[in-house]
Amino acid sequence: MFRPRPDSREATIAVEVEGRTVRVPAGASAAAAVLVAGLASIRDNPADGGTRAPYCMMGICFECLAEIDGVPNRQGCMVAARPGMRIRRQRGARSLAIE
């Protein structure tokens, strides 16, 4: 769980994290929103099922993979939070949605 610091910028961007509304300031990433939401983890690693959360926050470790606006496995730390963004945990391997 991360919280705004005292004197932080106003959290003007409202996003949904696992269906719950969370507010972050402009410039925050989707991964930051997940941390503010206080989720126990951001994904289940498909290799061993282990729960994982953001580690490097700079696009190197790929631990922050999340489903963002319906697209799976996006690096949450590299995606800027936008109003109305829907963020969900990445549950293991990508589910194929074939029409």
């Binding site: 991360f2 705004p4 610091r5 910028r9 972050v24 410039g27 925050a28 983890s41 926050m57």
Partner: peptide
């Protein structure tokens, strides 16, 4: 979950004013 790099915490502070 809960283990990060020091740099990661700094990035959260820089980009989102989060601690």
């Amino acid at each position: 979950p809960g283990v990060m790099t020091a740099g990661a915490a700094q990035i959260l502070l820089k980009t989102a004013d989060l601690v």
